[in-house]
Amino acid sequence: MMDLSILLALLQDGVVSGAVYGLLALALVLVFAVTRVILIPVGELVSFTALTYAGLEDGQIPEALPLLLALGALAFLRGALQDRGRSLGSLALQTLVLPAAIAGCAVLIAPLHAGIAVQAGLAIAVVAPMAPLLYRIAFRPLPEASVLVKLIAAVGVHLALTGLGLLCFGPEGARGPAFSDAVLTLGPMILTGQAVWVIFCTTAAMAALWAFFRLSLAGAALRATAINRRGARLVGISPDRSGLLAFWLAGLIAGLSGVLIAPLTTVYYDGGFLIGLKGFVAAIIAGLGSYPLAIAAALVVGVVESLSAFWASDFKEVIVFSVIIPVLLWRSLRHCAVGEEE
C-alpha cells in the first residue's frame, strides 16, 4: 500500500506546496498586520501570474495586460476622487505610466522566448502591480472601517477578479514550464529539480523579506505600523504609504508563488483561490501574527494535503480545511475571546 519511497515522495510534495503556502501566509500576515485587510484576492494574483507565465512559454502577449491597464485607470480615478486632485502627478506616474511601461515592455519581450528567468520575471512584473492598484481602488478609501467590513470588501474584490480572470484567460487551465528537469536520486528518495528550485526560491524570498524588515528604513516603518498604527502615524509614517508598500510586497510574493506553482499543477483562472485559502489556514493557525509560526503551519498544511490526497483524494480539501478546526478549538480554549478587534 505505502512504502518508504511513496511516503518520501508525498512528503516532498507536501513540503513543496507547503513552501508556497508559506509564502502566501507571509503575505497575508504582512498585509493584515499593516492594513487590517484580510487579502482574500491573493489567490487570484497567484493564478493570474501562473497563467501569464504559462502563456509566455508560447510567446503569447500576456492576457492580463488589459486588466492591469484597466485597474490602473480605475485606481487613478479613485485616487483623484479621494484626494480631490492633489498630487495628481505622482498618482498618474504610479497608476497610469508604470502599468503602461510594463505593458510596453511585455509586448516587446513576450514574442522573444527570452528564457525561463525572463519569462518568470515578466509574469511577476505584469501581475504584482495589481496588488497596490487594488489597494488604491478598494481598501485605501476604507481606512477606519472595521476588520469585518474590510474582509467583506476583500471578498468582493475576490469575486470581481474571478470573473475578470475568466474574461482574460478563458476557462482552460495551463501548466508552466519547469525551471529544471533534473532528477536526483538520494537513496529511496527521488528529488525533482523543480522541488529544489521551489524550496530555494521560497527560502531566498523569506531571507530577503527578513533583511528588508530588519535592515531597511522602509521595513522598519512597516513593522512600526504593524505594531502600533497610531504611534507610527505620530512619528510621521504615512499609513497610506505603508499600506501601499505592504500590498506591493504581497503582490510580489503572490507573483513569485504563482511562478513557482505553475509547473507543479495545472492552474485555472479561479484555481488560485484554494491555494490562497490554504495560505490562510496557515496564517490563521499562526493567529495572523507570527511569521515563523505561519511558515511552520504552512508546511503542516502542505504535508496534510499531500497525505490526504493519497489516502482519501475525494476528501482532500475537506481534510485540509478541517485542520483549522482543532487549532481554532485549542485557541478558543486558551483564550476566552481570541481576535477581539483592535
Partner: peptide, 21 residues
Amino acid sequence: AVTLRLSGHYLALSTIAWGVS
C-alpha cells in the same frame, strides 16, 4: 461549539473555511 468563541474576523474566516469544506 468549535468556532463561536472566536470573535470578529476569526469567526468570519473560519466560516469561509467551513463554506469551502
